[in-house]
Design a protein around this nucleic acid. Structure first.
Length: 568
RNA sequence: GUGCCAGUAGCUCAGUAGGAUAGAGCAAUGGACUUCUAAUCCAUCGGUCGGGCGUUCGAAUCGUCUCUGGCACGCCA
């Protein structure tokens, strides 16, 4: 799969070479006096009329050349040699942009490439040999999956997918918080509900900081149904431990099942408890202490703010002897980066944890971990809307809307699509009504409809006219000349580039928006150009383009894990 | 109080290594189905890029001040 980007790369290299050569010629001829030629940046102009690519190099050189930008541009363009390139025409425009208009043949090359690569089209190798660990959701096994988990899940899964598409070696990981304070709290909560069940609601006051969810009561009832009141006679500590040990695997299984239903498959389920059991937490703390990164204060052990560059000290071991979540988290990330030797760790956190980012980096720095190695992607929280108002409660259960409620209400496709439509950093308003609306207002259907139309063309030609797609070598792509055809081809040619940008920015939402563009170009093409019933030559050329569109749409829908229906 | 994120068309959002007339979808208005699916297409309308000052040939983008919203500042995670 050597260099699938070749078409784009080839064109870009060609333009750069032509431009740079022209600049040198100007300098040699004395028409341009500059200290050095800056790197030639190429961009795709917003307006199609401005050409296929443009560069602002003339504006950049204007100052040192002591000439107006347009003058510089004119000199450079005059010196360009275009023979033997894909460049058809060069213009100077606006304040001094140099615009390149390409011969449409390059788009035919792009189509050929898509047909050759098939479902591999868009697969890059920029991440080749780089092992990356993407950790996401990592929900506490103390209750149901919520909206934050839903967004983080879709986002994390798709970041992993995009990185894979860019050639990285990706591991999807879930960190199980099966140790520490929240498990204590789970035990405490279960005990209280357990006692209330057996001894009456008023037998004790439910602890303020315990989990109030109804699932806690359900666990207590279920335990009593199985084991009766056997825990009444044992010490409180044992009672809590037993109840927590009972509920934990059940909750964990529910999380696994819920995420499976959501389309997420993890490679690794990593237990926090294991870090305590194998001594990693203790080792980490001992090392920090020995190397002077900690201070003792008020009976607790703190990470020194002074040594780590933080504004204040942070507790690592409480006065009661229990390490904090942060201590375990440092040990965990050491495990990722140093024991398991991932080159890159990506964590997805809800934005309410942003305060923890600097602390984590500070906690890892003593171990030689650089900031770039541990990348935290923060995503803003979700607001659900129903009937134009903020919706907090599930229609069915009357309780807070969980991930499973969402899947029941809007389905998998809509959920994953909408969570991947906006950038992670933007607050997301999720319109529950829109997500289920079977109309043009709903962008999910827009894309799926394009795929269904394509499937329909292919099927009807096969079934009714006994026509199948010929190998690309025997198709005359030069027949594709309509504006709608060329624009669609151009859009499809962008795909590898889009993958690269999405991977670099860890923004899979870019691909979601891109696939909407592809669908739009296809729908325009569909309305302007017929396939079925056209003369053989043209029919095959268009059919090839349709097939290429199918490949790209399918590729992205698969990545986001949204259904690609054959009929709608 | 300090810090982080956000503020772009009526609504939801793109656009930040500074670039051309700031884009898209939805909504609104007007058109297109005897022709591969009209869940579609075509056209029109719609903007003090929260506000001020500054840097620059050029600012939604950079700096600074300010307003508004969300979040975080724990021996919670």
């Amino acid at each position: 799969m050597a260099n699938v980007n070749s078409i784009f790369d080839k064109i870009r290299t060609e333009i750069r070479t032509v431009t740079e050569t022209a600049c040198r010629a100007c300098i040699a001829a004395g028409t341009l006096t500059v200290e050095n030629i800056p790197e030639i940046g190429l961009e795709v102009p917003r307006e199609r009329g401005f050409g296929d690519f443009s560069t602002n190099i003339a504006m950049q050189m204007a100052k040192s050349a002591k000439l107006p930008p347009r003058k510089v541009a004119e000199q450079v363009v005059a010196a360009m040699v275009l023979t033997g390139t894909d460049i058809e025409k060069v213009d100077v425009a606006g304040p001094g942009f140099i615009n390149f208009i390409l011969n449409p043949i390059w788009l035919q090359e792009a189509v050929r490439l898509i047909r050759e690569k098939g479902s591999d089209y868009g697969q890059l190798d920029v991440g080749k040999g780089i092992r990356v660990n993407v950790e996401f959701v990592s929900a506490n096994p103390t209750g149901p999956l919520h909206m934050g988990n839903a967004r983080g899940g879709a986002l994390g899964d798709c970041i992993a997918g995009v990185l894979k598409k860019a050639g990285y070696e990706v591991t999807r990981e879930f960190y199980i918080n099966d140790a520490g304070n929240q498990i204590e709290k789970l035990g405490l909560s279960l005990e209280a509900r357990y006692l209330q069940q057996l001894q009456g609601e008023d037998s004790l006051a439910f602890p303020e900081d315990a989990y109030h969810g109804e699932d806690i009561t359900d666990h207590a009832k279920a335990y009593i149904a199985l084991h009766g009141d056997s825990l009444l006679s044992v010490p409180s500590e044992e009672r809590r431990r037993t109840l927590a040990a009972y509920a934990l695997p059940i909750n964990l299984q529910r999380i696994r099942d819920g995420l499976t239903r959501y389309g997420i498959e993890y490679d690794v389920w990593f237990s926090e408890k294991s870090l305590y059991e194998n001594g990693d937490v203790a080792d980490t703390l001992a090392w920090l202490k020995e190397n002077g990164f900690t201070v003792d204060k008020d009976g607790a052990l703190w990470l020194s703010g002074e040594m780590s560059g933080l504004e204040k000290d942070e507790v690592l071991v409480r006065a009661n002897g229990f390490p904090t979540y942060m201590a375990a988290d440092i040990a965990y990330h050491r495990n990722k980066l140093q024991v398991r030797k991932f080159d890159w760790a990506i964590d997805l956190w809800g934005a309410d944890h942003h305060g923890h980012v600097a602390r984590m980096h500070a906690g890892m720095a003593p171990f030689g971990v650089k900031k770039e190695q541990l990348e935290i992607v923060l995503f803003q929280l979700v607001r659900l809307y129903r009937n134009g108002e903020i919706a907090r409660m599930s229609k069915r259960t009357g309780k807070a809307i969980s991930l499973l409620d969402l899947l029941d209400e809007v389905g998998l496709d809509a959920a994953r699509f909408f969570f991947n439509l906006k950038t992670a950093g933007s607050h997301l308003d999720f319109d529950l009504d829109l997500a289920v609306k079977q109309s043009n207002e709903n962008p999910v259907f827009y894309v799926q409809y394009a795929h269904a139309r394509i499937s329909n063309i292919l099927r009807r030609l096969r079934e009714e006219d006994n026509v199948t797609l010929l190998p690309v070598e025997s198709v005359d792509l030069s027949l594709l000349t309509a504006p709608e055809e060329l624009q669609l081809m151009r859009k499809l040619a962008d795909y590898p580039e889009e993958v690269a940008i999405a991977a670099k920015g860890l923004e899979p939402s870019r691909l979601t928006r891109y696939v909407m563009d592809v669908a739009a170009e296809f729908h325009s093409f569909y309305n302007a150009c017929h396939v079925k019933g056209e003369a053989q030559e043209l029919l095959q050329a268009r059919l090839t383009l349709v097939e290429c569109t199918r490949i790209v749409i399918r590729s992205i829908l698969d990545l986001i894990k949204i259904g690609a229906p054959e009929r709608m």
